[in-house]
Every structure is written in structure tokens, then in C-alpha cells.
């Protein structure tokens, strides 16, 4: 056993950025649904009881305010993840074999949770949602600035295609949130370390 150095499972910068991101992403999704409702691209609208901003102008104001929190916090997270070694230590892309093995275990509810160590399914989900976040920001910029950022708009295939990509990125993030929250509900003891930091039972090499 390694020496029992007291080291939090989630260091404070990660906890702070996690909750700032939660605030930003929920505001972006809620206000985004209200904006979507003004000109739906699919044959449905979101119930206004779960949207943010009571009319289009308010929803846009929330969306274009929260985007700064989302983007600045996201950049801080990516920079911290690289500099601190967090990505290198904890978010190594899983091999397909490891992902398959852990996914099968997870579906049979036999996947053990070890505090401070991400299994292959977790790593795939976290890397996936980071990629979706980047995609949501870039496609959102393309929707916001299709003239000044015409090259970005072209990357996504124009204004209307950018809206579709932006929507699908949101849908993917909402799907992640559903799994993320379901797992927290199944294993509630993982919640506290994200608030108070927690102490790793065994040190992580």
C-alpha cells in the first residue's frame, strides 16, 4: 500500500470548475430550449415550464451571458487538466477492449467504483462530453456569427446546418447528464467528494 498521504479525491480547482460548469451548462440548456422554441427545427417544442427566460429576448440574454462562464470556465478546465497532469493521470482514452469489458460489467451492475480512479466507461463518457462541449461552443459561435465567422459557419455547412449541429451537441450533453445523474443516484457516495473533496483511501500513483 502506498503511504496514506491525505490527498483529496477531487482537488479544489476541479470541484470549483465542476459546479461552475454545472451552473453554466444548465443555464445554456434551459435558455437554449426557449430560443429553440421560437423557431423549432424538429416537430416538437420544449415545455416552457422547464425553459429559462420567459420570452425569446430574455432567453437570448441568459444564453449570451452564460456562454462567457461556460467558455472561460471550460478553457480554465482544459488548461488546468493539461498543466496539473489530471488528463494524463485520469483521463487516458480507454482501449476498446477495456471499454467493452467495463461496459458489460456496468450493465450487469457489477462494475466496482473505486474513489479517485475512473473506469473505462467513465473515461469514455467524460472525454465524450468534453468533445461535445467543444462542439456545442463552436457550432454556437457559427450560429451567432455566421457573417463575421463565415469560415466556421462553412465548416458546419451553413447557418441552418450549424443550428442542427448545435442542437445535436446539446442532445448529446443532455444524454450524458442523464447517465451521469443516474450513476450518482445509484452510487450516492460519489457525490460528497465532489463537494468537500473527500480523502482517497489509497493514494493514486
Amino acid at each position: 500500500m502506498p503511504s496514506p498521504r491525505s490527498r483529496p479525491i477531487h482537488p479544489w480547482p476541479l470541484r470549483l470548475m465542476h459546479w461552475l460548469n454545472a451552473l453554466a451548462i444548465l443555464t445554456m440548456i434551459g435558455s437554449g430550449w426557449q430560443i429553440y422554441n421560437a423557431a423549432p427545427i424538429f416537430p416538437f417544442s420544449f415545455p416552457t415550464s422547464i425553459t429559462i427566460g420567459q420570452w425569446l429576448g430574455a432567453a437570448i440574454a441568459w444564453h449570451l451571458a452564460a456562454m462567457w462562464l461556460l467558455v472561460l470556465n471550460g478553457i480554465a478546465y482544459l488548461a488546468w487538466g493539461v498543466v496539473s497532469g489530471h488528463f494524463r493521470r485520469k483521463l487516458v482514452p480507454p482501449t476498446p477492449r477495456a471499454l467493452w469489458r467495463d461496459a458489460m460489467l456496468a450493465l450487469r451492475l457489477r462494475l466496482d467504483h473505486r474513489h479517485g480512479v475512473y473506469n473505462a466507461v467513465q473515461r469514455a463518457l467524460y472525454l465524450g462530453v468534453i468533445a461535445l462541449g467543444v462542439l456545442a461552443v463552436l457550432s454556437g459561435l457559427a450560429v451567432w456569427k455566421p457573417v463575421q465567422l463565415w469560415w466556421l459557419s462553412d465548416v458546419f455547412g451553413g447557418f441552418r446546418a450549424s443550428r442542427v449541429v448545435h442542437f445535436l451537441a446539446m442532445a448529446g450533453i443532455v444524454g450524458f447528464l442523464a447517465v451521469h445523474l443516474a450513476l450518482v443516484a445509484l452510487v450516492p457516495r460519489v457525490l460528497w467528494p465532489m463537494i468537500g473533496g473527500g480523502a482517497a483511501a489509497e493514494d493514486v500513483p
Partner: peptide, 16 residues
């Protein structure tokens, strides 16, 4: 119309 987003809902209650 009432908003159902917890604390966020309270914040947005009067927006604009």
C-alpha cells in the same frame, strides 16, 4: 408562467 428550475428559476423569475 412559473419556472421550474430551482434556484435558477428564482433568479430568472422576473427577467425582462
Amino acid at each position: 408562467r412559473a419556472l421550474a428550475f430551482g434556484a435558477l428559476g428564482a433568479l430568472t423569475g422576473c427577467d425582462y
